[in-house]
Every structure is written in C-alpha cells, then in structure tokens.
Design a protein around this nucleic acid. Structure first.
Lengths: 226, 226
DNA sequence: CGCCCTTTTGAACACCGTCAATCTCCGTGG
DNA sequence: CCACGGAGATTGACGGTGTTCAAAAGGGCG
C-alpha cells in the first residue's frame, strides 16, 4: 500500500504482514540495491517487472512537458511498485533513500507465462493499490493544505515513526518539493504549513529530514479523515 | 479504463476491444440492469463481485462525514468497476444513466477459488485502472480548472461522442455537481468554465445534458496533456 | 570556511470557493 | 397545451486560500 491517509492504518498493517510472508523462493525474482538518487526505471522503459520494496524509500513520479510534476506515490518497505498495463512504464521511479528491492518478473513471454501464485499475489497487491489511490483522490481533490499535510504526516508517522516517549520521531526522506508534488501544493505552502504546525506545538522540526509529532490527536483532527 | 485524459485514447480503444472479447460464457457471471438513480453497491457492502459495464453510465463515489464528496470514476461501457481489496466496498456505486452490467463473482470462498482465466483478465483490468488513476492524479493535483474541464471533455468526446459533420456531439449523463466532484472543483466553477468555452466558441451547450465540441484542437490545447 | 541547494519567510496577486440571486430546463398536473 | 414548481444551472460580487515572485536564512559537504 502506498502512503495515503490515516484511516487505512489497518491496511498498512495487513500489507506488511503480507509482505513478510510472500515472494519467498522462486527463480523469476532478483534482489537489487538502488542507491539514493539512482533511478529504477523511467517513463517509456519496458515494464517486465514489478518491485517489492524491502528497505529504503522509492519515489514514483510523472511529469508534464511544461515541467509540472506529480509524485504518484512513495514506495515504503512493504509496498509493491511498478504496475503497468501497456508493457512500458508511464512514470519514473527513483530511490530517495538507499533501497533494497526484490524484482519480480511479470514478462508474459518468458517461460510460458507468469507463475499463477505470483500472479494471484500481484492481483491482491494491485487491489490494495487501487484502494489506496482512491483515498488519495479525496486528498488531492477535496482537502485543504493543512488537511493534506496533517494526513500525510499521520501516515508517515504510522509507517516510519519511532516511539520516543509520548511523542513519535519521524524521518522525512523526501524534500519539501517531493511532498508538495505528492499533495498538489507548492514547496512554499508545505513549508508555511509546517511552520504553522510548529507554532501550534503540534510538531517539532528536527533539521530538514526529520520531525517529531508532539500532538498526534490534534494532527488527526486536522487530517479530517472519515 | 476510466475517464481520464486524452493521451490515453489508444488505451480506451484497446480496452473496448478487450471488453468485447472477454467474459463470454462461464457460470459465475450474471447480467443485471440498474435503472437511473439506482444503487449497485454502497460503502461497507461485501465486495464479492466486480461489474463490467455493458451499457449506460455508473458513478463511483466516496464521501467524507463532513459532506465533502469525491467522484472516483465514471464507469462507461467497457469499464470494470468494483475492485476492492478488503472484502467490502469503500465507495458507493450508482447508475446515472440506466445501465446493463455483467456481474463477475470473485468470492474466493466459492467453488474453491476464482477461475484462473477470469482472474488473469481482472488483473489486466486492474492494471489499466491503476494507469488511468495515475493520470487522474495529475489532473487533480496539477491542473487548473480550465485544463481539468478541457481534459474531461476530450475524454468524454472520445468515448461517448458521435460524429456530427466536423463537430462532435457529446451526451453528458452526469450533473455539473458530479463533474465538479470528479475534478475537485465546485459546480459554480464548472459552470463558469463551460460558459467561457462557449463564449470562445470552443463548445456549444445543448440543454444541460449534452454539448457539441466545435473546436477540438483548441480543447486539446487547453487540456495541456503530455 | 565558503559555496550551493533547500527551506523559510514576506508581500502582492490570482484563481477559485462561497454566498446569494436569478434563470433554465423539464417533468407534472391542471 | 400551457402553467406551475422544483431541482439544477448560471451569473455576479466578494473574500480567502494558495500561488507567484523575490529575498533572506539555514544546512550539508567539499
């Protein structure tokens, strides 16, 4: 599942369980390491594989020719990334934190088709992604900047956060610009909203690559999830 | 494929071909008719089936408790709707134009699992939907009101349009409010944008439920697709 | 330490949302 | 057939949220 909103925590949990139990053994899979900043695939590349994120963070991006960018998803450990319907990728995937992935070949031409069990697992993963993307629609179309940021931080806190007494420490592997392009905002608005939340003592910033959630209740309130 | 943007026309074509050739025969499927305004499933309903739209138009909606609504997709002939990962639906599906659908059972408990061939076809359909949703992200997050409307009309024109000399006649089964909730706008903005396009002679309105595309080139320009 | 990229902050503006009034369409019933 | 009524659509005025443009501050790495 991709990063979406807090009302899907249970899904994230289910997904992680799934990720642990699946894709062991078999010979059409291959482990790969992608260093920070490196590209896993680009728009137009053949899409013969999907990638299961084991560690690190990937970023899936689509760009319009006029420069406008949309971050489709962040691939965190447990996510599967690289689904494509036409045999080639419509987006670009880069590592924003050094990542280990397992590559699963889904090339239909190879070895008389794909392992049925793998296909079945991939189908389930695709369904989870559809569900996550539907949530993100609500995020992009119907939430204010503050609600978007709050929702985003809640999910990040849940998936990447570490307990720190009553608070939660959250690493931010992505830049403000990445967050902006994920939420349909500008870097300035992201920055301003962070500053507001800090002024309200809901979060504390720790450099540019980490923060602490001081008041998760308030953050959840702001997220306005159903 | 769902209604997204013009740069996926070839996909729509491929999809329709697919829809014609698939899902013939078998016994886990059932034809159903849904009258205008009737509901196919609601949030929370068990999701044991997916639905292939044969005729008419469906609308897939998700709602926040504060009343904000997001139309996830319009289901046009050839689309498959009702994918769900958790065994129950997270959204509501209504017919906005009297529809015939074929229901395909995907209940894993029934008859020792789902027909492998059907599962394979559904996987392909799910991949197409993911691709379409990724396009829609760009729409919701990074396009202006005019670009959204233009993109939307281009797709509708392609999928529902009828040749009318040099122009294209397009039926609009959905209300302004449906369009607004699909594009992340308000009804007022949708209406205003239609009026602007009419003033520029790009389109002509024909009552509330139809329009004519007078200048498809201009419309495509406005859509700002890559 | 110094450079450069990212982030933050400020100010002015624009687009779109909100609120409200009017109009159109279309189905219903007289 | 026309009048009526109501839901949906249009239009206008105004305000707010977020963008744009610009400049300063911060952080990371040589």
């Amino acid at each position: 599942m991709y990063v979406t909103n807090p009302n899907e925590f249970y899904e994230a949990a289910a997904h992680n369980k799934f990720a642990v139990s699946s894709f062991q053994g078999g010979d059409a899979e291959k482990k790969r390491e992608i260093a920070t900043g490196k590209c896993l695939f680009r728009e137009g590349d053949d899409a013969n594989s999907v990638f299961e994120v084991k560690t690190g963070v990937l970023r899936l991006t689509r760009v319009l020719e006029n420069g406008r960018r949309q971050v489709i998803a962040f691939g965190l450990p447990g996510d599967i990334i690289g689904f494509s319907s036409l045999g080639y990728h419509m987006s670009e995937c880069d590592a924003i934190a050094s990542a280990e992935v397992v590559e699963h070949s889904v090339d239909p031409k190879k070895a008389g088709g794909v392992d049925p069990e793998l296909r079945d697992r991939l189908y389930q993963a695709a369904l989870r992604e559809i569900s996550a993307m539907q949530d993100h629609f609500m995020m992009l179309g119907r939430k204010s900047a503050r609600e978007k940021i709050a929702s985003f931080l809640m999910v990040l806190s849940d998936r990447l956060g570490e307990e720190l007494g009553a608070y939660t420490h959250v690493k931010l592997p992505m830049t403000r610009s990445d967050i902006a392009d994920f939420l349909g905002l500008t870097t300035e608005t992201v920055s301003r909203t962070f500053s507001q939340l800090r002024a309200e003592k809901v979060i504390a910033l720790e450099g540019n690559k980490a923060l602490i959630v001081l008041n998760a209740d308030q953050l959840l309130d702001y997220a306005e999830c159903d």
